[in-house]
Amino acid sequence: MSIQHFRVALIPFFAAFCLPVFAHPETLVKVKDAEDQLGARVGYIELDLNSGKILESFRPEERFPMMSTFKVLLCGAVLSRVDAGQEQLGRRIHYSQNDLVEYSPVTEKHLTDGMTVRELCSAAITMSDNTAANLLLTTIGGPKELTAFLHNMGDHVTRLDRWEPELNEAIPNDERDTTMPAAMATTLRKLLTGELLTLASRQQLIDWMEADKVAGPLLRSALPAGWFIADKSGAGERGSRGIIAALGPDGKPSRIVVIYTTGSQATMDERNRQIAEIGASLIKHW
């Protein structure tokens, strides 16, 4: 067993022997301040990774656009098919120029040779490549099948209805392509620590998230040296922004954090800054 596999296998073990965790309302004060600064709703939840206990939450059962955070769930569904012998990570998928959609920095470079399922998941999570996500959605049967996968996990809230990039439209009061912070946090925890996926697939999923290259201005910008984070960000229309993450000190994750916002007129930089400040408060009061 590799060191990384050992780390993920012992996530519940280490967490069980940690000192009790206590909620700190100071972080919620910052979440509410972010709402004021952005002029928009902000949803927040913080779960203990081992027990699933909610440590703090704000608007945990209000719907927010998922945006690209759905790509972690998508690759979880792909990995479940791999575990069941219905898919192979090494299978190569070929596609054409007509398949390319807006923001496809990886797939646009491989029109000639195609990409493997493993490479597509890596591109979808680490670079948020939209064509990679659409190609992977095709392998599982489309958005409705991802929703069905989530329902089978016990998540009857999260739903995907459309493809990239239309799913980022974020129309107010439109339930399409949305989740709730509580539902997303619980589902992410199941994917990373539950028995739904094999140990190898859980490790692969967290490795992809740990290698995320496009979430630097968010929670990662607030992390002290030595902290662990595996995350996936999302951005959408109407001032929408979000991030889902597993993080913790001492090089291992111990909490799940989900943050979503929508309806702001603020710039992307300002949305990023507010999420980073929430992260800084979380870490300060850990």
Rank of each mutant, 00 (worst) to 15 (best):
H24I: 09
P25Y: 14
P25S: 05
T27D: 03
L28D: 03
L28G: 06
K32D: 06
K32H: 07
K32I: 08
K32L: 06
D33Q: 04
Q37A: 11
G39Y: 12
G39C: 08
G39R: 06
A40E: 10
A40N: 07
R41P: 12
R41A: 11
V42D: 04
I45P: 10
E46H: 10
D48W: 05
L49Y: 01
N50F: 08
G52F: 10
G52H: 12
G52Y: 09
K53C: 01
K53R: 09
K53V: 10
L55W: 10
E56K: 08
F58I: 04
P60W: 04
P60E: 04
P60M: 05
R63K: 03
R63D: 03
R63Y: 11
F64E: 03
P65N: 08
M66K: 02
M66Q: 03
S68T: 09
K71R: 11
K71Y: 15
V72E: 00
L73H: 00
L73V: 06
L74D: 02
L74I: 08
G76Q: 05
L79P: 02
L79S: 01
S80V: 15
V82G: 02
V82K: 02
V82T: 01
D83P: 01
A84Q: 05
E87C: 05
G90I: 06
G90L: 09
G90S: 07
R91T: 08
R91N: 10
R92Q: 08
H94W: 12
H94D: 02
S96A: 12
S96I: 04
Q97M: 04
D99H: 11
L100V: 09
L100A: 06
L100M: 14
L100R: 03
V101S: 15
E102A: 01
Y103I: 09
Y103C: 07
Y103P: 13
Y103W: 00
Y103D: 14
S104T: 02
S104K: 04
K109R: 07
H110M: 01
H110A: 03
D113C: 03
G114C: 09
M115A: 08
M115E: 06
T116F: 02
R118Q: 15
E119Y: 02
L120W: 14
L120G: 04
S122V: 12
S122T: 11
A124W: 04
A124L: 07
I125A: 09
I125N: 11
I125V: 13
T126V: 11
M127S: 12
M127L: 11
M127E: 12
D129H: 01
D129N: 03
D129Q: 01
N130I: 10
A132E: 04
A132P: 02
A133D: 01
N134L: 03
N134C: 03
L135T: 05
L136F: 06
L136P: 06
L137R: 02
L137T: 04
T138S: 10
T139E: 13
T139A: 09
I140N: 09
I140W: 01
G141M: 07
G142P: 01
E145R: 13
L146K: 00
L146E: 07
L146M: 05
T147P: 03
T147Q: 03
H151N: 07
H151E: 02
N152L: 11
M153V: 08
G154L: 04
H156G: 09
H156K: 10
H156F: 12
V157N: 06
T158F: 04
T158D: 13
T158N: 10
R159E: 15
L160T: 03
L160I: 00
L160E: 14
P165W: 01
E166Q: 11
E166C: 04
L167I: 02
N168L: 06
E169Y: 00
A170H: 00
A170F: 00
A170Y: 00
I171C: 06
N173W: 10
N173G: 13
D174L: 06
E175Y: 02
R176V: 01
T178N: 14
T178E: 14
T178C: 13
T179I: 00
M180K: 05
M180H: 11
P181T: 03
P181Q: 10
A182K: 06
A182P: 12
M184L: 03
A185Y: 13
A185F: 08
T186Q: 03
T186E: 07
T187N: 07
L188P: 14
L188H: 15
L188M: 00
L192P: 13
L192G: 13
T193G: 11
T193D: 06
E195K: 00
E195L: 00
T198M: 04
L199V: 06
R202M: 02
Q203C: 08
L205S: 07
L205T: 05
W208S: 06
W208A: 08
W208T: 04
M209C: 14
D212P: 15
D212C: 15
G216V: 15
G216K: 15
G216Q: 04
P217Q: 06
P217I: 12
P217D: 15
L218G: 15
L219G: 09
R220Y: 10
S221R: 12
S221H: 13
P224S: 10
P224H: 07
P224E: 12
P224C: 11
P224G: 04
A225P: 08
G226R: 12
F228D: 15
A230P: 09
A230F: 11
A230G: 13
K232I: 08
S233G: 15
G242M: 08
I244H: 09
L247F: 05
L247G: 08
G248F: 07
P249E: 01
D250E: 10
D250A: 09
D250H: 10
K252M: 13
P253I: 11
S254Q: 01
S254K: 10
R255Y: 12
I256W: 10
V258E: 07
V258A: 07
I259S: 10
I259E: 08
Y260L: 14
T261P: 14
S264Q: 00
S264W: 03
S264T: 08
Q265I: 14
Q265T: 08
M268F: 11
E270H: 15
E270R: 12
R271V: 14
R271M: 04
R273S: 12
R273M: 07
I275V: 10
I275D: 06
E277G: 07
I278E: 08
I278P: 11
I278T: 13
S281M: 15
S281Y: 02
S281A: 07
S281D: 08
S281G: 11
L282R: 08
I283C: 11
W286C: 03
W286F: 05
